[in-house]
C-alpha cells in the first residue's frame, strides 16, 4: 500500500487536489432565497467551472516539480477565463434586473459577479495547497492540507452584514395629507387618496442608525440602500405592480445625522421577520468606505 502511494505520488496529489477543489466549490455554492445561481443549469455551469479551476490548481505543483516552469503561465489563462465568468454573470444579472419589480441595482450585481470570480480563485488555491502538501510530503498530509484549505475558504466566504454597522428599529409610517414620513424622516409626496389609504394600511417603516462615521457613509450609498430594498421585497414579498409608481419602496437619508429611513409595502407584514431580514442584508464590498482610516481624520482631535 505504502509503496503504491509513493510510486503514484504525482497522480494521487493531483487527484486529491481536484477532489478538494471541487469540495470547496460545492461548499461555496449555495442557492438561497435569491435563487441565484439558478437551479439546475446555473449550478451546473458553476460546478463545471469549479472542476476546471480545481484541475488547473492541482496540476500546477507537479508541473513545477518536473521543472516545467512555463506551465505556470497556464494559470494566467485561468485568470482570463474567470474574469469572463464575472463578465458573464454581470451581463446576465443586468439583463434580468430590468424586469424585476424591485431591482437589485448595479452595486449588488457587481458584488455577486465579484464573488463568482473570487470563489473560483479560492478553488484554485485550495487545489494547489492540497496537491502541494500531498506531493512534497505524503497523501495524508495532503488530506490535512485540504481540510485546512477548506477552513480558510469557509472563513473567506462570508462577509459582513448590516447588523455589524447599524442598529435597525421599526418606525411608524405616517401619512400627513400627501406627505409621507417614516418616524420623523420625510420620504415622499403621495398625491392620490387611494395610495395614501394603501400606505396607511400596509406600509412598514424602519430606521437604521449607524454606529460610526464609516457605517454612515456605507448606508448612504445608493447601491447599498437598493440592496436592502431588494432583499426585503424578495423575502417578504412586495405589494406592488408595474405601472404603480407611487407604491415604490424607498430609502431616504436624514442628512443631519446620517440615519436611514426605509419605507416599504410588504405582502407579509411581519415586523420581527423584517428586522431580521434587514440585519442580514450583506454589506456590499463596493459600498464600503472607511473615512476614519484617512490620515486627516486620524490626526483630528475629536475623531468622528
Amino acid at each position: 500500500m505504502n509503496t503504491y502511494l509513493v510510486e503514484h505520488k504525482m497522480l494521487l496529489g493531483v487527484l486529491l487536489g481536484i477532489v478538494f477543489g471541487i469540495v470547496s466549490r460545492l461548499l461555496m455554492l449555495r442557492t438561497d432565497y435569491r435563487q441565484y445561481p439558478t437551479y439546475p443549469h446555473g449550478r451546473i455551469i458553476h460546478i463545471s467551472l469549479g472542476v476546471i479551476a480545481a484541475a488547473l490548481g492541482a496540476v500546477a505543483v507537479p508541473a513545477l516539480y518536473n521543472k516545467d516552469y512555463t506551465a505556470i503561465t497556464f494559470l494566467s489563462l485561468a485568470a482570463q477565463q474567470f474574469r469572463d465568468v464575472r463578465k458573464m454573470e454581470r451581463e446576465t444579472l443586468t439583463k434580468i434586473d430590468e424586469l424585476e419589480l424591485v431591482s437589485r441595482g448595479s452595486t449588488y450585481i457587481e458584488g455577486i459577479a465579484m464573488v463568482f470570480e473570487g470563489r473560483n480563485y479560492l478553488v484554485i488555491m485550495s487545489a494547489l495547497l492540497t496537491s502541494l502538501f500531498a506531493i512534497i510530503w505524503n497523501v495524508y498530509l495532503g488530506i490535512a492540507g485540504g481540510i485546512l484549505s477548506l477552513l480558510i475558504v469557509r472563513l473567506l466566504k462570508s462577509g459582513k452584514n448590516i447588523a455589524h454597522i447599524c442598529r435597525t428599529e421599526g418606525a411608524e409610517v405616517r401619512v400627513d395629507g400627501p406627505d409621507l414620513f417614516v418616524g420623523d424622516i420625510y420620504i415622499m409626496n403621495v398625491g392620490l387618496r387611494e395610495n395614501q389609504e394603501i400606505i396607511r394600511e400596509r406600509g412598514m417603516g424602519f430606521i437604521l442608525t449607524p454606529y460610526n462615521p464609516n457605517g454612515k457613509v456605507t448606508i448612504s450609498n445608493l447601491g447599498q440602500r437598493q440592496a436592502i430594498l431588494y432583499d426585503l421585497s424578495t423575502i417578504l414579498g412586495i405589494f406592488r405592480d408595474d405601472g404603480e409608481p407611487s407604491l415604490i419602496p424607498m430609502a431616504k437619508l436624514d442628512m443631519k445625522d446620517g440615519r436611514l429611513a426605509i419605507f416599504f409595502l410588504p405582502q407579509d407584514k411581519d415586523m420581527t421577520k423584517a428586522l431580521k431580514v434587514i440585519n442580514k442584508v450583506p454589506i456590499l464590498e463596493s459600498a464600503v468606505r472607511m473615512p476614519t482610516e484617512a490620515s486627516v481624520n486620524k490626526e483630528a482631535p475629536n475623531n468622528g
Partner: peptide, 15 residues
Amino acid sequence: TAFLLEKILDASAHD
C-alpha cells in the same frame, strides 16, 4: 382624474 392619469401615464401623482 389624477388616479386615471397615474395609471395611464405610468407616472406618479403629487399633491
